[in-house]
Design a protein around this nucleic acid. Structure first.
Length: 553
RNA sequence: GGCCCGUUGGAGAAGAGGCUUAACUCAUAUCCCUUUCAAGGAUACAUUCAUGGGUUCGAAUCCCGUACGGGUCACCA
């Protein structure tokens, strides 16, 4: 007659260490703050929702003088994607949600590692060995086929599906039988023997939701898969205990497995961590709310924002508006770039999923871009262009100083221009500054002067305007423009014109438009005077001559 | 379907029994400013808090039911 101890030794012949040893190896931290973590699995890109979760985790640690670490949950090799680890690490860095400790490339850092779950195999096996000894974990030889049949049977009979109670066949196997099947080479998994009863309710405390009452877990879940790696549930309990996490911050989708986790903590005699379950970020789809989807929503991938040239802080600021409801009010009257000084609190967190609002992102992104000083802006744009925007990059490389002066139009003063929500918007609106591009614009879309005015008149005004270049400042330049306008029977300002429209051909605005179209090929452009001086006198004259010649054809 | 969580304007939301004529931000609309645009300024936009009932002198706020939305039921996390 064999014992659980024999079983444990057969399953884990190489394990000598105990939970006790692990407790000594990973002692409680001497850190007064909260210990939080971000624990993604390397199955693809950095998800916008994950960024949100990690942002909150980072904020909580930061505001309590604690630790925020990164742990990679790579226990599902089938889903693992090459390069995903790097993407995750670099993603966090570019968004400024940098961990204090944990997984990193090339080397992880911290005293509580390894921070890559596949390297923690032995830790799980040590804990598991003890659980087998205690009879809390048992081998299960059911095939996925058996499991499917069980499930179908349960569904047919309208029973709760799952491996539990009387349906948990392998839980009642004798130790002798289990041992002989293992020795026969039969594949098996390890399951946790639940003591729970579905009829009993337990109360769980959630930092955001308060008390949640849920039925006890009664499922004998798999804790060790046949490939020797643990499942999420088990790894979560072991890792967050030995890495000394104090608050587990994760998505709302985990609430339903909370009873299982609570039961495991109890049976392991580990003090229960605190939990905070975050609302999911949602998306409107055909009038229905649903959670962000990897496949359907490009914005679910954080790189969407990078590719479009949103400054990373813009996304973070936007996410902050969802994180805490009082953030926006706090921000009023402050510089957006000071967003980091905001104090996070769980109580100001909403309970239901927010719809992702691109328009609001754009609004804050304009604020962010307008708040950058010109050098920062220039460097950011340059980096963006190098990576994602070849057209823009080509223009920048022609002459950086020239490009910088374009970027800097109307950025001084109390109300800097806010025309870009993302760097992708830059190229189409500034390319007219470059001669070849300008000619392309004129060729492709033509020159559309207001047909109200005679071509000869436009021609005359254009030629006269060349003398204005020497004006020393914008005021005198504009005065000069008014003189020209007035000379040709245009009102000097809109008001005068509106008072007696029949007395005039038009107003200065019409005259300015002629110049604007001539220089930029468009009726809309940034400040004309500054534009003119960036182009330079020669270029101005050349463009006037170019357009003027077409007028007299 | 079982279980869990949630429900205040188009969106994010404040609100903890009387101070709410429901804050603040985005969006939208109109007006002002203005040589165009981007801004900036002003105003408007929920007679009502999913719904039905209850508790109370008094409810968006407390209780119960209903509806709706979301999540979850894997050897995925």
């Amino acid at each position: 007659m064999k014992t659980y101890e024999d079983l444990a030794n057969i399953i884990f012949p190489d394990i000598d260490e105990t939970i006790e040893d692990l407790e000594k190896k990973y002692p409680p931290r001497n850190c007064k703050g909260e210990v939080t973590r971000f624990a993604p699995s390397p199955t693809g890109f950095l998800h916008t929702g994950s960024l949100f979760t990690s942002l909150v985790s980072k904020k909580v640690a930061e505001s309590s003088d604690g630790v925020f670490y990164l742990r990679l949950e790579d226990t599902d090799q089938k889903r693992e994607v090459v390069g995903a680890k790097e993407t995750l690490v670099s993603g966090l860095k570019t968004f400024g949600v940098t961990p204090d400790e944990g997984f990193d490339i090339p080397h992880e850092h911290g005293e509580y590692g390894p921070y890559l779950q596949s390297n923690r195999r032995n830790i799980y096996r040590i804990v598991l060995k003890e659980l087998v000894k205690r009879g809390d974990v048992y081998p299960c030889f059911c095939s996925s086929d058996d499991l499917n049949k069980l499930r179908e049977f349960q569904e047919r009979n309208k029973m709760v599906p799952g491996y539990y109670g009387e349906f948990a066949k392998c839980r009642n196997l004798t130790v002798d039988e289990a041992i002989s099947r293992i020795e026969n080479g039969e594949p098996y998994v390890l399951r946790f023997k639940s003591h729970g009863d579905h009829e009993n309710k337990i109360e769980c405390e959630d930092l955001i939701r308060g008390r949640i009452s849920i039925s006890e877990n009664d499922l004998d879940v798999v804790v060790l898969k046949s490939d020797g790696l643990p499942t999420y549930h088990f790894a979560h309990v072991v890792d967050d205990h030995f890495m000394r996490t104090t608050i587990v911050i994760r998505g709302e989708e985990w609430i339903s497995s909370l009873p299982l986790h609570v039961e495991m903590f109890k049976r392991l005699n580990f003090p229960l961590v605190k939990y905070a379950h975050l609302p999911l970020i949602m998306k409107m789809d055909n009038g229905k709310k649903r959670k962000f989807s990897k496949r359907k929503d490009p914005e679910a991938n954080v790189s969407y924002f990078l590719e479009n040239g949103y400054p990373p802080v813009s996304l973070i600021v936007y996410l902050m508006t969802i994180v805490n409801s009082n953030f926006e009010e706090w921000l009023v009257g402050r510089n957006v770039l000071d967003f980091n000084e905001f104090k996070f609190s769980f109580s100001k967190m909403s309970l239901d999923g927010a719809l992702f609002d691109l328009k609001k992102l754009d609004y804050y992104s304009k604020e962010v871009i307008a708040s950058f000083d010109i050098d920062t802006l220039f460097n950011n744009v340059k980096k963006y262009a190098e990576q994602y925007d070849t057209d823009l990059n080509e223009l920048i490389n022609r002459d950086e100083t020239y490009f910088k002066s374009i970027l800097n139009i109307e950025r001084d003063g109390p109300h800097p221009r806010k025309d870009y929500a993302k760097y992708k918007d830059i190229y189409p609106s500034i390319r007219f500054f470059y001669r070849d591009q300008y000619e392309e614009i004129v060729r492709d879309s033509g020159i559309a002067f207001n047909p109200k005015f005679e071509k000869t008149l436009i021609h005359e005004i254009l030629l006269e305007s060349t003398s204005l270049y020497s004006c020393l400042d914008e005021t005198s330049w504009f005065e000069g423009l008014k003189e020209i306008a007035s000379k040709h029977s245009f009102a000097k300002d809109t008001k005068t014109f509106k008072a007696n429209p029949s007395d005039y051909l038009g107003h200065v605005g019409d005259v300015a438009e002629m110049l604007r179209i001539t220089f930029t090929g468009s009726r809309r452009s940034p400040n004309l005077y500054q534009t003119l001086h960036i182009l330079g006198e020669d270029e101005m004259n050349s463009r006037i001559a170019f357009i003027a010649s077409t007028l007299l054809k």
